[in-house]
Amino acid sequence: MTRTERSPAKTGTGNRTTRLLGAGALVASAGVLYFGLVTTPADEVQGDLVRLIYIHPAVSTMAFVAFGVTALASLLYLYPRTRSWRWDRLAGASGEVGVVFCALSLATGSIWGRPAWGVWWTWDARLTLTALLCALFVGYLALRRTGGGAESRAIRSAVAGVLFAVVVPIDHFATEWWRTLHQGDTLATLHPKIHGSQLWTMLLSFIAFGLIYAWLMFHRTRLEQLESRLENEGLAYALAARRAEGAPSEPESGPETAPVSGPEAAAVSGSASGESTEAAASAGLQS
């Protein structure tokens, strides 16, 4: 088992890259807002409703990209030669961000569908598939939060992540055949001609949401890293703090000098019940 645990120098989740990404995302979003709401024309048929194409397609695409990254990272974690905690964290972070984007995609789709189709929801093949995916990944996130040993949890969720890659094509055919039997693909017929400025704004929205995805991913993977550090080192940290409390006259054997050997600490928290270790650690850190 290769464990490439590297402790970050500081405890924050931001750095120069994330700040640059964040600034870029803000600027791009502002651009999308301005072009999307002010300069681009309203559609002849759909009116202002058409402005949702500056959010919805980009958000949906990002959701699928995020799920794809989860499946790929899970596969890389399972493959012995590339097994690294980095892939586990990436899979988890991408799954979480993906669920957010997927929920946003369903929500914006509903908001568009209500005035355009007259219903909040229709059993369109693509809609059904997106909803199924959302449910699948909510299950995946639940699986990631089950506690227990870090390694066992990582393997379970990696297998689940890879399984999704297999499920999605089957779901695709099932929903496609099921619905095309009753009605045509509603979405395909409703794509109107796109003007030049609309196309550029739409492209900008893809950039904006791509940057937001990247920014969220950086922060989320770092957060996962810190969480696993808390799991591994938290108990030792808390013990050192208690010892320091018990012997006030002794020179400060501060938390800085607490034994922070990653693998051993992980082995402890892996074999003992991870939940109680974590609870003790966080209780210790809070007081």
Partner: peptide
């Protein structure tokens, strides 16, 4: 087996399985 050994398996299992077997429900029903 993915959920076996977890304390929350009774509640987790339906959440994991039901969306995955949705194609079976669709296909077998049709």
């Amino acid at each position: 087996v993915l959920a076996a050994g977890l304390r929350v398996r009774e509640t987790l299992l339906p959440l994991l399985i039901l969306p995955v077997v949705a194609p079976v429900l669709i296909g077998a029903t049709r």
